[in-house]
Design a protein around this nucleic acid. Structure first.
Lengths: 338, 338
DNA sequence: TTTATTTACGGAAACGTTTGCGTGAAAAGA
DNA sequence: TCTTTTCACGCAAACGTTTCCGTAAATAAA
């Protein structure tokens, strides 16, 4: 066992525990000479402060929790990379937790965090949104919380999102301009704000720009095989000439369905999707995407969180506590005119 | 601030602190009636034990560290998902850390961990391998360590890997069977075992199955643009008819180069790659891959770690402490015969 | 010179748990 | 009835820090 603690250093140097502690924290109360002795020995013995002890005493754990649904798509991987860039700079660590879209898991984990395990929380919510009671409780525990992407309307915390509504309008408009007369919308997460907002963008764009009077919305599930069947049935029954996938994996499944049904993309059907797939350009055909600034979202959310942790209340967000970042529409072959 | 601690519960119930603590841990020393009173109040007040305090006292943090190079490919995302499945079951949490292939970062982080921040460590090493001194130190600190994928030969810890050598031979053989007369090998990480092992597989397969007497190895870098140039120059100069990418991202870059050079895959050149890309089947053309059991690797490594943490020394590994899982060669169009 | 201030350090409490030990009362055994 | 065991609980120490306080000595101000 590693027995090199402050007490040991103190004994070794004929100093008191408090002096060593202060020296290590570079306190002005300690003479330069003493500090140097302490630093040197600490380095020589590879002293590492016990984080539980300092966390217990000082309420500073040097850790933030990142709570996300899962990591099945490239979006969250990029977000985490962005978060990590910031935590790395700040000397912080990431406590990672997946909710798997299970609201109960989210609640129980958030509750766990309220006990002071971390200095702050970054959260992208699970599917259900009606109940944000646990977030209120976390807030009242005094632990800073920043939401990103899948946010809740019920709390007033800082939120970092992307311009889902405009992007969704833009995407739908792009399909219409490409000649689509009947556009299907593949949806999942209809209960969380981001899901609603994206669909509203689709609906509005139809009303505004298209002759298509009746929207075509397909509710998909979290099970890929099931979704495959659903999409196939829909394509057979409705024969849309455009598909707007609200999340990446639906586009992937849709590609598979089209392959099976021998539908030519983009000749028979055009596809656009919200996606951070880094292979989008290499797909067959290359996939037109609305690409969220995932890395930026993570980086921004982390910075906002540290602003709160460090009590600099200057936030990038305005009074409404919202930071909205721009997505990009990247046109590729899957929506080419012919 | 959340002030609901054991002391508060004790006062509220007219019990001593120790009794409450024991009741919460379901000790046999406490009567059923008292336990119930404690449980009920704890639940009602949403009591959450302070992890720093219990970590400090009992040396149990309910956290394991996962140290990986980064998350730019699907492999590590899947590994983490596998790990998370196990930690979820065990009620553990994941402390995530990226080394970005920087050996110094790895060392300093591992050192940090030696102070008891976590109950165990899962590590996939950064590029440099000559120095595993920090691992020895971690071992001597008594914190269980399991290595996976990018392992070191210098330590005797449990290691979970996949059959890189056989897979590499198989991949090369597959290209040869597909008719390739001149196969290039795209490599990075030449300093870590997994890199060496994979290349040896390529070299051996050439000797054994091919008329190609001189291997064609291209050293790539971590910078994609640089790698793009390198590959392009190599393709122009050497005109290979087959490419074996030792890691996923090299295959992706190679696809881009071929697109730019208007080389037809698989007609002009065939490509195979180690990869966990879930869109491999949808690429243009679909990419033949050696797919590692990434999720299994994560799951297995985590299970091995918990075996050690819980002192059940029954390991899946044999005496040599190695668990080797099978990869799969998935044949797709990028290596089709014509 | 005397007094006030600063400097540099030590003592000890506190953070919230866990756990070895002690103990009175009840139950069991003699 | 008396002794022994079991039961159910309380006391207090310990984990490694941080920090409030106190205090000698050194320095500055009077």
């Amino acid at each position: 066992m590693s027995k090199i603690n402050i007490k040991y250093l103190a004994k070794e140097l004929n100093l008191s525990i408090s002096t060593v502690s202060r020296a290590l924290r570079d306190s002005h109360e300690i003479s330069g000479e003493t500090k140097k002795r302490v630093f040197d020995l600490a380095k020589r013995l590879n002293y590492q402060p016990n984080s539980n002890a300092s966390g217990l005493r000082g309420q500073k754990t040097k850790m933030i929790a990142v709570v996300i649904p899962d990591m099945v798509n490239d979006f969250f991987s990029l977000v985490i990379s962005g978060i990590e860039k910031v935590t790395q700079e700040k000397g912080y660590h990431i406590l990672l937790h997946f909710t798997h879209g299970d609201h109960e898991l989210e609640v129980s984990f958030i509750n766990t965090l309220a006990s002071g395990r971390v200095d702050g929380v970054l959260l992208s919510m699970s599917s259900e949104d009606n109940d944000s009671h646990h977030l209120a409780e976390l807030n009242s525990s005094g632990i800073p919380l920043v939401l990103f992407d899948r946010v809740s309307e019920c709390v007033s915390n800082v939120k970092v999102t992307s311009d889902n509504h405009e992007s969704s309008v833009l995407a739908t408009h792009h399909l219409i301009e490409a000649g689509c007369k009947k556009i299907a919308y593949l949806q999942v997460h209809k209960n969380i704000p981001v899901g609603k907002v994206r669909m509203n963008g689709y609906l509005e764009a139809l009303q505004q720009y298209s002759a298509q009077k009746v929207p075509l919305v397909l509710e998909c599930t979290n099970d890929n095989d099931e979704t495959f069947e659903l999409i196939q049935k829909m394509l057979v029954a409705e024969k849309p000439d455009g598909v707007f996938a609200s999340v990446e994996k639906l586009a992937v499944v849709c590609y598979r369905v089209c392959e099976k049904m021998r539908l030519k993309i983009p000749d028979d059907i055009k596809i656009i999707s919200f996606s951070n797939l880094h292979t989008a350009a290499l797909l067959n055909p290359s996939l037109t995407t609305i690409t969220q600034p995932a890395f930026d979202i993570g980086e921004t959310a982390a910075k906002e969180l540290f602003n709160i942790i460090n009590k600099k209340n200057r936030t990038l967000a305005g009074d409404n506590n919202n930071v909205v970042l721009q997505s990009r529409l990247i046109k590729r072959r899957s929506t080419a005119r012919y």
